[in-house]
Design a protein around this nucleic acid. Structure first.
Lengths: 211, 211
DNA sequence: AAAAAGTCGTGATGTTATTCACAAATTAAT
DNA sequence: ATTAATTTGTGAATAACATCACGACTTTTT
C-alpha cells in the first residue's frame, strides 16, 4: 500500500521467486546466488538482482543471498501473513482444476467459496470448498474481494457486474470476453485460446534456431 | 518465417484482434474504427493502429477498417489456412478444459491427440480427441510439433525431454516447473498460482482508485 | 458545393523494462 | 597473508513498448 516504486514487471516475478526460494529452503539450502536462481527460474541474473534491489540490499557481495532471510523477506512483502479469500465462479473443468491445484495451498490465498449454475453440483464440495448456486452470489459473497471467473463467456459480463456491485475489486478472468469494469477494479486476463494461438504464431514467424 | 519486424507485443494481440473481427463479421458489421475496436478489446486505439500499421496501410482515413478485408488479412497472417496439430499431455481437469474449449474450434488449431497416465482414461476420448497412454508418447506423437503440458509438475521435466526428442518445438506449459529445453524450443509459461498471487499483490500495493 | 466531423498512419516523445559492465565487497584458495 | 575467484548492487546504455498529437484524406452533413 506504500512504497509504490516497484515496477510491475518485477511484481509479477515475485511469486515465482517466492516459490522457488521455498523449494530451496525445504531442500535445506542455505545460500543461493543470482546466477543459480537465474538458471532455475529462467530469468536473467541481472534482472533478478535488479528486482531484489528495489527492496534494498538483500544480498552480500561474494556470497549471494541467504535463503532463509530472503524467504522471510518475501513472505512479508507478499503479505503471506494475512489470508486472502477468493471466490471461484464456475466449477467446470477449469474451475475444478483451480480448486484442486495444490500450489495454492502453499501461500495464504484460499478459495473459500465456489459457485456454479449446475444444480447437481450445488451443495457438494470440491476439495473442501463448498459450491453454492450462482443465484446466491450476492448473499454469499460477503466481503470477498477477489474472484476467479471460469464461467462460459456468455455469462461473463452479467456476473462481473454482480461481483463489482458486491465490492469485488480484483478479477482473474479466464473467459475470452473482455469484461467492462469501473476504474477501481483490476482485471487480469488469461485467455487460453490466445495463448495457444500466439505460441503457434511465434513458432511460425520467429524461429529460434540461433536467435 | 519472413518479415521479422513485428514486435512481440503486437504478435500477442493478433489472436485477440482476429477473434473480435470474427465476431463483428458474423454480426454482419462492414466497417470498424480503431476507436470501436479499442473499447471492445481494451487496448488503446493508437496501439491498435500502430499494430495494424506493421502490416501495411490496412485502413482508410475517415472511414476506418473494412471488417471483411481485415479479417481475410489476419486469417492469412495467422496462417489460418493450414491446420496446426497439437498434442495435449495430461487429461486432468485442466487438460479436459482445453479439450472442451470451443474457442479453439474457430481457428485452425486442433488438439488431435491427448495422453494420460490413468488407465481408465486411456482408450476413451474427450470431445472426439482420443486418449493414449503417456508411455505411447514416443510412438504416437508422430510429427506433431506443439504440445500443451497439463501434467503434475513432478512429471514435467521427464515428459518435456521426450517431447523435445520427438521434435516438438513449442510447449505451452501450465506446470509450475520451469522446464529446461534446448535453444530452438519455445516455451510459454502459464502459471495459475503465480497469476492469482500477482493479482492479489497488485491489489494490495497498487490500488487503482484514481490512478 | 462547402463545411464539419471522423479517422488513419506515423514522427516524435515518453515510459517501462532489460541488459551490460564494473567497482566494491566477500569468500575461498594457496 | 596474499592472491584468486565470486558475487552483489547499480550507473549507464540499450531495447521494447505505449501514447501523444497532428497532417492528410474520407465521409457526412448542411
Amino acid at each position: 500500500m506504500e512504497q509504490n516504486k516497484i515496477p510491475q514487471a518485477t511484481a509479477k516475478r515475485l511469486p515465482l521467486y517466492y516459490r522457488f526460494l521455498n523449494n530451496l529452503n525445504q531442500q535445506g539450502k542455505k545460500r543461493v546466488s543470482s546466477k543459480e536462481l537465474s538458471e532455475a527460474v529462467k530469468v536473467d541474473s541481472a534482472t533478478i538482482r535488479r528486482d531484489f534491489s528495489y527492496f534494498g540490499a538483500l544480498g552480500k557481495k561474494g556470497y549471494g543471498y541467504n535463503v532463509e532471510y530472503l524467504l522471510g523477506f518475501f513472505r512479508s512483502t507478499l503479505d503471506q501473513h494475512e489470508v486472502t479469500e477468493v471466490a471461484l465462479i464456475g466449477a467446470g473443468n477449469l474451475g475444478t482444476a483451480f480448486l484442486k491445484y495444490s500450489f495454492l495451498k502453499n501461500n495464504n490465498i484460499r478459495i473459500t467459496k465456489a459457485f456454479d449454475a449446475d444444480p447437481s453440483k450445488v451443495g457438494t464440495d470440491i476439495d473442501g470448498v463448498p459450491i453454492y448456486h450462482v443465484d446466491e452470489l450476492v448473499e454469499q459473497l460477503d466481503g470477498i474481494s477477489v474472484a476467479i471467473l471460469t464461467v462460459p463467456s456468455s455469462e461473463a459480463e452479467a456476473i462481473t457486474e454482480k461481483l463489482v456491485n458486491e465490492g469485488v475489486n480484483g478479477i482473474l478472468n479466464f473467459t475470452p470476453a473482455r469484461i467492462t469494469v469501473p476504474q477501481h477494479v483490476r482485471v487480469h486476463h488469461i485467455d487460453l485460446a490466445v495463448e495457444l494461438q500466439s505460441l503457434v504464431y511465434f513458432l511460425k514467424h520467429y524461429p529460434l534456431d540461433k536467435e
